[in-house]
Write a protein that binds this DNA or RNA. Structure first.
Length: 362
DNA sequence: TAATCGTGGCA
DNA sequence: TTGCCAAGATT
């Protein structure tokens, strides 16, 4: 059990350090729960410098919850393009619609209700409650677990879901009643700027005199986390097809799963060898349109894209339809679009790499 | 619980 | 180059 003088000491040094060292970030110039919500979702598993331009653009386009609620989903995805983890965008919009419809556009201020809103989990709920509503609630992210696991030499594996609860209980004992926002943000800022994963700057740390790992010289042994497996490799051929008018064939991905709802040049999975590249492309066209007269060229350059759990190897084949008539597409989620229209569709990064290889402007 | 879901930075 | 890492949520 922690003694009260330790807790007071912890709060005092952390709050003083945060007050003097906090970065001036766009979302720190407001306490509007809607803007805090957007920033927290964008910051999930994403670095601050990456988020800043997306945040600025997003709140300009969707300054109110009503604006976001009424926007077409594909337009929202377009604004999220390149930021990754696209279910965040769909869930954010779904959550905002829930709040507009069920709570008269007032974001709930209690944890239980907040957790029922789409896209809001334990961390984001705590962040909104503490930062926007000044409530003494924990907001435990990777920074907080790293900082606290070092200070208290906590050995639990932070990759396990239930470990977060251990840290939440600890934060409940540490967090000050009246300074919840700077306390939570201070813990995260300390993790980001000082208590870094590889090379913690303990000499500059305001809590080093309270840190057990530091006293034991074992800072980099914490946090404890199990290793993750290597990405599984998959080989594809991207089929870049143009009709006689120079339009490109693009296809929409399914509404669930990887890169849901995004557009792409049709991908055909192949086994590793390159001698399958052209036959696979031809097979795709055969299955989609039947027999067509096409002038093919195989691109020498290939692309690679690494996801959290997958590694794509991409070959590119370009084809031009020689005959005038292209069969109709029926119910397939495909379209023929002009090169100038590509910019109106959301394309994920691997597709942008394919465009570069195929020398298509985007 | 464990797997899924992006992308860019960095040692 | 490779692996790790970043203000996690969902299923």
């Amino acid at each position: 059990m922690l003694q009260s003088h330790f807790i007071i000491e912890f709060q005092k040094y952390l709050l003083k350090w945060y007050k003097e060292n906090r970065r001036d970030l766009p979302w720190r110039r407001t306490v509007d729960p809607y803007y805090i919500w957007i920033s927290e979702v964008m910051l999930q598993q994403t670095q601050v410098d990456t988020v800043i331009p997306y945040y600025e653009k997003f709140i300009t386009h969707y300054p109110t919850m009503h604006a976001l609620a009424q926007a077409p989903q594909e337009e929202v995805l377009k604004h999220w393009e390149g930021l990754g983890y696209y279910s965040r965008a769909r869930n954010l919009q779904a959550g905002v619609r829930e709040v507009v419809e069920n709570y008269d556009a007032q974001i709930p201020s209690d944890r239980k209700t907040l957790l029922n809103v789409k896209g809001i989990g334990p961390y984001t709920a705590g962040a909104i409650l503490s930062i926007a509503y000044q409530k003494p609630e924990p907001a435990v992210d990777g920074n907080v677990m790293r900082v606290l696991s070092r200070i208290f030499q906590i050995d639990e594996d932070i990759t396990k879901a239930k470990t977060r609860k251990t840290f939440e209980q600890l934060v409940y004992t540490l967090i000050p009643e009246d300074d919840a926002s700077p306390f939570n943000q201070g813990l995260m800022e300390l993790g980001a700027l000082i208590c870094k994963p590889k090379t913690p700057l303990c000499e500059a740390c305001p809590l080093s005199h309270l840190c057990q790992a530091r006293q034991a010289g074992k800072q980099t042994d914490y946090p404890v986390k199990s290793k993750k497996l290597k990405q599984k490799g998959i080989h594809y051929v991207a089929v870049v097809l143009q009709d006689d008018q120079g339009r490109y064939l693009i296809q929409q991905r399914p509404s669930e799963g990887l890169l849901a709802g995004f557009w792409e040049f049709p991908l055909q999975e192949i086994s590793a060898s390159t001698d399958e590249v052209l036959p696979s492309a031809e097979q795709f066209i055969e299955e989609t349109f039947g027999t067509l007269s096409i002038k093919w060229s195989v691109c020498e350059e290939t692309a690679q894209h690494i996801f959290s759990h997958l590694k794509w190897q991409l070959n590119v084949v370009q084809g031009k339809v020689l005959s005038g008539q292209v069969p109709s597409l029926q119910e397939k989620p495909m379209r023929w679009i002009a090169e100038t229209e590509l910019k109106d569709y959301p394309f994920p990064v691997p597709q942008q790499k394919i465009m570069k290889i195929a020398r298509i402007a985007y």
